[in-house]
């Protein structure tokens, strides 16, 4: 019984991984692709780790700790990637709208790449 529940959690997690990789291919620009790939690191990771913890109760403490640290660090990674893409003027999908007045890139004198 316990093993079945754990396996169900792991299967749900891998389904979310599949979805996020489909999103990675289908999305039009870098921002939306980062968005699609953060799905894997949230619900996919959490539910795979939780599934492992339920399947093997000895590991539960370790797994909870891993969930805590992943939820602390993985948003920072994707946030920094998006920030770099935004300030370096990466390609945006055509229908992207901006709802505020943009200030020019305030990053420390990096050269503007011409792509």
């Amino acid at each position: 019984m316990r093993e079945t529940i754990g396996l169900i959690f792991i299967i749900i997690g891998s389904l979310f991984y599949v979805l996020s990789s489909i999103g990675l291919i289908r999305m039009p620009d870098v921002f939306n692709r980062i968005q699609a790939s953060t799905k894997a690191t949230t619900l996919g990771n959490f539910s795979i780790l939780l599934g492992v913890g339920i399947y093997e109760p000895d590991l539960l403490g370790r797994v909870l700790l891993m969930i805590l640290f992943i939820s602390l660090k993985s948003p920072i990674g994707s946030s920094v990637l998006t920030r770099a893409a935004y300030y370096s003027g990466a390609y945006r999908a055509e229908n992207t709208k901006t709802y505020f007045i943009e200030t020019p890139a305030q990053d420390e004198g990096g050269e503007q790449n011409e792509l």
């Binding site: 999103g23 039009p28 939306n32 619900l43 992207t96 709802y99 505020f100």
Partner: peptide, 24 residues
Amino acid sequence: LVASNIEMAKIVLSPSLPIQPGFV
């Protein structure tokens, strides 16, 4: 988290890709 994950899954799987990206 769960609600918005399911919403994203719908967006990714729907053939027309109904996104309206923006910076706010």
